[in-house]
Amino acid sequence: MTEFKINASGLGYHSLNNLIKEYSARGPGNIKIENVFGQRYIGAGLESKVRIEISGTPGNDLGAFMSGPDITVYGNAQDGCGNTMDGGRIVIHGSAGDTVALAARGGQLFVRDGVGYRAGIHMKGDTTKSPALVIGGSAQDFLGEYLAGGVIVVLGLSHDGQRRHHGRFIGTGMHGGVIYISGGLEEHQIAGDAVASKAGEADLVTLEPLLTDFAGVFGYDKEELLSNHYLKLLPRYLRPYARLYAPGGHETAPDR
């Protein structure tokens, strides 16, 4: 595999992305980018199956719209990481900002530590693709808002073994997908649109491959992660607004 090195120091995002595009056009390769300092849109829209290793702090919209690359960040990511991501993988050895994986429809996003507000908002999947967001630490409010598909897992590993999550409004407006939270939640943290239950054996089909990868990437014990108790949030309604609308009074209302 060809290896490329980029020193991002002093490079604007456009120049940096141009180099990435140039290298990734040369076939499968490993692109190492050092001294990243807030450059936005790294890997945006990239379809090539390249490996990108980032040292430093990438800016907003890391990997937006991308479908191919496997991006690893040695540092923290900022807002909009994995925005409308279509495929590929983003691994963050640190924490990430707000709206992580916004509207993602495929691929995987692993964050070792915590994430900001509205993580996984409006992720969606279908029979061909389903995104996964695994958060090692915890998440701020509105996790999985409008969730329409895919899987979100929150491990709470940075909570000194206590696994207490402080985020509120979890699953607001969710109408698809599933959220797993290790360590449980207080009732008031869960939005009315979500229904909580204990995860069981059947959920291992989803959890096992994700947690195996997550443990492998960050050096955790897979069995330990799998032995946690997970709370599972599912949408209360698949069609939350089915009763919100009525046709105009000039015609017959359909049966409800």
């Binding site: 807002d79 969606k124 409008y146």
Partner: peptide, 25 residues
């Protein structure tokens, strides 16, 4: 690119656009 029979909901705002700066992004 969504499952059959589900509501397709477009939220009122783009949740990555709360300002002109965000739009620029």
């Amino acid at each position: 690119m969504i499952p059959e029979g589900t509501d397709a909901l477009s939220p009122a705002p783009h949740h990555d656009i709360y300002s002109i700066e965000d739009l620029a992004q």
